[in-house]
Design a protein around this nucleic acid. Structure first.
Length: 827
RNA sequence: GCCGGGGUGGCGGAAUUGGUAGACGCAAGGGACUUAAAAUCCCUCGGAGGAUUUCCUCUGUGCGGGUUCGAGUCCCGCCCCCGGCACCA
């Protein structure tokens, strides 16, 4: 009776052994090539979910594969441990956020261990511990010194549910990214990071990221939103005020027939002063300021405005043009004021029609391109007309000329505008890194001295969910002495956005115990950049831009040489079930623990990698996992049935010509499979096809086994195939393969064995199937020896009965031969 | 509206450089073993039609054109789906 596949015992046994022998622990070794695999570290919510399992399984396969290929592989794990849920738990259940977080981590850790991931646990990073967040504070101070962290009063996004400020990036459809509550606008003084200083580099850096998915690059570009254009000033007639505008279409300046200001523009009130209906206008402005903050797009009918009563001078035409205030102009973008060119901008056109403002055409389509017939609106580049000295130029020609004119006359300049805003990091929460700043009545904003770091979170805080920062209520925290004048002073009570923590954690993994710096630059120099970063695309903008930004800052601080932390990022697809993302409310959550209990970690890992390529959505299928379980069972049973082969030694070699067909076939298949799996894992990251080719290989081994067992060379090759099979499966199903490795008489670990190599001479079959087509349609095929001369193949193809049928009357017009593959006969 | 990605059996998905479309797996159907069930093993499996013993023909990768000896793959024009951004001047 064969031994049953007892995955429970097997998996426990190997996990214990791996842990005891610390086989995943790595140290810097300049003589060995390094490989750094990184997963987006999880938030300790309490339990891991299938998304984690997928993310971590992908990288575990790559890590194990790279190790077997001789790389020194850094595969760390840690915890994104600060954040709202811990604080909510504290408010609701009275558990301290720290306890809640640490308990969750310890549970999740045990779950990860059950999955057999090859983590170097000695490098575990936990952002909610002072040993970590001390360095957040350190980095913050360095940024403060360089003017990269600064205070600014501004209108901020406020989530009434979370009782905190949100970054622009954390507002999705005017709602809080976490709790979906409608976001409000508040005027507050906040800490910002000057990410806009790096806008240009964040954009140009994309050129180095050719191994990133295109959609992520596109999203980031979109988010950074660079526009090239011109800034020009319009002098208000009979006054010394001038209005600054931004345009990307300076070539349309001769068609600028009015100016429009945003209702929030600071000059609005000055411009309407003393005009007719001033009180009405004032009210209108106020109403529309409010309306703009609802964030809704204003439709054509809703486009509204008022005439200020003032005019300004178009610097090119010297005409006086009216100045309007309208609700379709945003204060947040550009200068909050625009030159309106109704003939060549859809919104200006709509507005001009509504208020009967002049529309002057200054651009016509170039060449024979027809103008859009609809309504006389043409928004593309073309040829200039009615444009004084510029008439006749193309838009492309006119733009630089006009900018030159502006600069010469000091009326404006060529400029670049970004959509990207500075990153507001202040959060009125407890469970985050305290911002290391002290406010002194005498000295103003003072940084905490480095020697006083970390500024630790106080423990005497009650969690009631009231408005305001919880830290404000901790006297022991707030009250302090000014480091400069030693007078009474007050600490900053806001904490940092947790995205601060996650912007550099991958540096900390390189030297998690470093005491003098955020990380040891030499160790970081060895490990970084990250060779493969895997995580959900939902972080395409937030985390991945912030992390790139931080890397550049750390570089400018002299701590690293690299410009880009993640040259290769793979955005892993969502895990869904029954057509939607797993969620408690949908009731379609599959619990990893339950699956591990039922099928074992090896099966779970194999399945989650098998049914779809990593970047695509993965639809969980309860029956699909059965298929993978059956496969591992078949492998297990097959090894049990053939273990006898590994006990005895086979007699001396037999000569090549004794190899029977099956032996030759299986040998070819073996080399082909090694090649395919190697490429799929190492080059294409298509783990699903790697698994299917392993399955194919095994199916063929199984089919041929009884024949192979009947003779000595057959037994030899069968043994070899089984050994190779174990190595190929091992990154996916490490426990069962390690067990079978031991059962087949190996004393060292499979994990430490070398990845199998293939020989090209064996990858190619000696006989090939030549496909015969007539007019491109498959009609017949035949076997031929590889590299048979072209003429012979062609005549064989033509002589086939089935081909004759098509060729006979007409005779072939042309015969095309693709070597070792195909003959196409054209009749 | 703009940007990016995609559309292949009942399902998840293969097809890597333009060269046998549907690998691998799931589901389904049939059979073997069994008192029975489970498990396991074998066979069939895009559609239509015809021979029916192994077979033959047509058709088929969102739609319509094109390039080519040959197109899921390349080009042009559409349709639809997903994701992102959106009064961005």
């Amino acid at each position: 009776m064969n031994k049953k596949y007892d995955f429970q015992t097997i998996e426990k046994k190997w996990q214990d052994k791996w842990q005891k022998e610390e086989i995943f622990k790595v140290t810097e070794d300049p003589n060995q090539p390094k490989y750094y695999t990184l997963e987006m570290y999880p938030y300790p919510s309490g339990r891991i979910h299938m998304g984690h399992v997928r993310n971590f399984s992908i990288l575990d396969v790559i890590s194990r594969y790279k190790t077997m290929n001789g790389y020194n592989v850094l595969h760390p794990i840690g915890w994104d441990a600060f954040g709202m849920p811990a604080e909510n738990a504290a408010i609701k259940e009275g558990i301290h956020p720290k306890k809640w977080t640490l308990d969750n981590i310890s549970h999740m850790k045990s779950q990860l261990k059950r999955l057999g991931f090859s983590y170097d646990w000695s490098r575990e990073v936990n952002t909610c511990l002072p040993e970590y967040y001390k360095w957040n504070q350190w980095i913050f101070l360095k940024m403060f010194e360089r003017g990269l962290a600064f205070r600014k009063k501004s209108t901020v996004n406020w989530c009434p549910e979370c009782q905190t400020v949100l970054a622009n990036e954390q507002v999705i459809n005017e709602k809080c990214w976490r709790c979906d509550t409608e976001v409000e606008q508040k005027h507050m003084e906040q800490w910002f990071l000057k990410i806009t200083d790096y806008a240009e580099e964040l954009l140009s850096g994309h050129k180095k990221l050719h191994k990133w998915p295109q959609n992520v690059i596109a999203m980031q570009k979109n988010w950074i939103g660079k526009s090239r254009g011109a800034q020009l000033n319009f002098k208000v007639s009979d006054s010394d005020i001038s209005i600054e505008t931004f345009t990307t279409r300076i070539d349309t300046i001769y068609g600028a027939t009015f100016l429009v200001l945003s209702p929030e523009h600071p000059l609005c009130h000055k411009l309407i002063e003393g005009s007719e209906d001033e009180e009405f206008k004032r009210q209108w402005i106020q109403d529309n300021v409010r309306q703009q903050h609802t964030g809704e797009v204003i439709s054509e009918e809703e486009k509204e405005g008022i005439f200020t009563g003032k005019t300004a001078v178009n610097p090119f035409t010297h005409e006086n043009i009216p100045i309007w205030i309208a609700n379709y102009v945003l204060m947040e973008y550009g200068t909050g004021a625009i030159m309106a060119v109704p003939a060549h901008d859809e919104r200006d056109f709509q507005f001009a029609q509504k208020y009967s403002l002049p529309i002057r055409e200054v651009i016509v389509p170039e060449g024979n391109k027809e103008k859009e017939e609809s309504d006389g609106l043409f928004t593309e580049y073309g040829k200039l007309i009615n444009s004084g000295p510029y008439t006749g130029m193309t838009s492309e020609e006119a733009i630089p000329e006009m900018i030159k004119f502006l600069q010469d006359k000091k009326l404006g300049k060529g400029t670049v505008l970004f959509r990207l805003r500075d990153w507001g990091i202040s959060r009125q929460r407890y469970w985050g890194t305290p911002i290391p700043i002290i406010y002194c009545k005498k000295c103003g904003i003072v940084k905490v001295p480095y020697k006083d770091l970390p500024i630790a979170l106080p423990s005497d805080v009650e969690f009631k969910g009231e408005e305001g920062s919880p830290l404000e209520k901790s006297k022991s925290f707030v009250q302090t002495k000014c480091p400069l004048c030693h007078g009474e002073a007050r600490r900053e009570t806001d904490t940092m956005d947790t995205f601060f923590d996650s912007s550099w954690y991958y540096f900390r993994y390189c030297s998690p115990d470093e005491k003098n710096f955020p990380f040891d630059p030499d160790k970081a120099d060895y490990w970084l950049p990250v060779d493969l970063y895997v995580g959900g695309v939902e972080h395409a903008i937030l985390h991945l831009i912030y992390a790139r930004f931080f890397c550049k800052i750390l570089r400018d601080l002299g701590l690293t040489d690299i410009d880009e932390p993640f040259p290769h990022y793979l955005g892993q697809g969502m895990v869904t079930k029954d057509g939607s993302a797993m969620s408690k409310s949908k009731g379609n959550v599959v619990d990893p623990d339950e699956m591990i209990g039922k099928y074992g970690a090896d099966t779970v890992r194999l399945f989650i990698l098998f049914a779809a390529p990593p970047e695509k959505e993965f639809a969980w299928d309860d029956q699909g996992i059965e298929g993978c379980f059956r496969f591992l069972n078949r492998v297990w049973i097959f090894f049990q049935e053939n273990l006898d082969l590994f006990g005895k030694t086979e007699e001396a070699d037999h000569s090549e010509d004794e190899l029977s067909g099956e032996i030759k076939d299986i040998q070819i298949k073996m080399h082909q499979t090694i090649k395919k799996v190697t490429q799929d894992i190492g080059e294409r990251y298509h783990l699903n096809t790697a698994i299917s080719s392993i399955m194919e290989f095994f199916n063929q081994i199984k089919k041929a086994s009884s024949v192979l067992r009947s003779n000595s060379p057959g037994r030899k090759i069968l043994k070899q195939c089984m050994t190779v099979l174990l190595k190929l499966i091992s990154p996916f199903a490490p426990h069962v393969s390690e067990e079978l490795w031991e059962l087949t008489g190996h004393t060292s670990l499979l994990f430490h064995s070398l990845w199998p190599e293939y020989e090209d001479s064996f990858v190619k079959e000696e006989t090939v199937t030549v496909v015969v087509q007539v007019n491109g349609k498959l009609r017949d095929k035949f076997e031929a020896e590889r590299n048979t001369p072209q003429e012979e193949i062609k005549s064989r193809a033509l002589s086939l009965d089935r081909i004759q049928k098509y060729v006979k009357d007409k005779g072939p017009k042309k015969v095309i031969y693709i070597k070792n593959k195909l003959v196409n006969i054209v009749v």
